[in-house]
Amino acid sequence: MRKLDIHKFKIKDVKLLLDVNSGALHIIDDIIWDILDCSSNPLEENIFLYLKDRYEKSAIIEGQEELIKLKNKGLLFTPPHKFPTIHEVEFLPVKAICLHISHDCNLRCRYCFAKTGGFGRKRSHMSLEVAKSAIDFIADNSGSRRNLEIDFFGGEPLLNFDAVKSAIERAKEIEHEKDKNFRFTLTTNAVLLTDEIIDYLNEHNISLILSLDGPPEINDLMRVKPDGSGTYYEVLPKIKKAIFSREEKNYYIRGTYTKKSLNFSDTVIHLADEGFKNISLEPVVSSDKDYSIKKSDIPFLEREYEKLVEIYMERLKGGKTFNFFHFNMEIFRGPCLSRRLKGCGAGTEYMAVTPKGELYPCHQLVNYEDFLLGDIYNGIKRHDIRKTFHKTTIFEKENCPDCWARFFCSGGCYGNAYSMNKDIRIPDETGCALQKKRIECALAIQAMIKRDNIKWRGAFL
């Protein structure tokens, strides 16, 4: 008998059953849970023999009949899809670039994957000319794609704000010349935010990603200045000014939790109570430091995500809702197949541009010179690298083809995989376990929202 491609899990008081191939999601009761537990064929006639001490025979048969009805409707035990093979194509459009506006930083955060801003190289800024030429590069290489994205990143991009302005100026010209639509995002540690910069960011509708790890005793452990002093009390008022000046829209507070701050649900509460409504906390990606998260921490962290579900639902019902990035999920109108198979599009439709104009598959892989694709002036030279990314779908990754979460996580982050395993096809094991837990939580939240008829304002950004 073919292995049943289903996944059942409990969050709070809710038991859920996901039919992996169809995506059908069901809330189930104890009888169904136990029927599915006691045999590889839950529809076989003698199941009641295993469960007769716990349930009436009629209830067990009734449960099995419901399972059969769902199977016949194509909502349970469905066979795998036959997906088209990913073929090599002549032209792959680029639709998003991450501009490394500065390979320098005014902070020395201990966990920084950019090696405190310089990516292990000589500290440098992107020139105005490179910033403009990068915009020309994406416009010339985007084919028929109309919606294009520019991320301003670093290091710290506010150290070189003229280059940000230069890129935006060029993008606005191209919007008129070539009927393109640019969207902008800027990631900052907030130290250099001024009224003038905040006004500019708001006027140009730039989404903001603001780095803050939580209360001072957590934030200032890792996010420090060159002299080792903390940053919380300096950046908090600037962050608040920035988000309240834009009517609390179009931003995320982006924090990192580490081995030293595993109880991150308390951190989320702290941030929510500070008035932040869009919050993201990510586990640090690192393997050999005193702050690295270990495999043995996973059970504790899974309980933290469940605690966060409880807090999230309480506040949702009480009207004091906040938005947690990893609980965002659209189960009625989600992304289409091509995105689910490949995720972020690193190396194909998404690339990073260094201050010199070099092209890399993503902002995290700038750390590794083996991934140098080419540059914005001469185009892509390493088509072999690009083809590898193009063909690395969830079906090419280790453990992903049979994983229940494959159509939700899209195989995880290439950068994290390479950072931890030196292979973009081998997902980071700890990150993978936590991502699966977050998906379970997000599905449970959506199920509870529908079951209890709660108004949900939808995912943001």
């Binding site: 909502l75 899809h81 992304p335």
Partner: peptide, 25 residues
């Protein structure tokens, strides 16, 4: 008598390609 409550017939939405959506990360 109801043991199963179907929340959605597909949590993948209309999964089954124009590329105009926002990049994920």
């Amino acid at each position: 008598k109801k043991h199963i409550d179907t929340i959605t017939i597909s949590a993948y939405g209309k999964m089954l390609g124009c590329g105009e959506c926002k990049t994920s990360c």
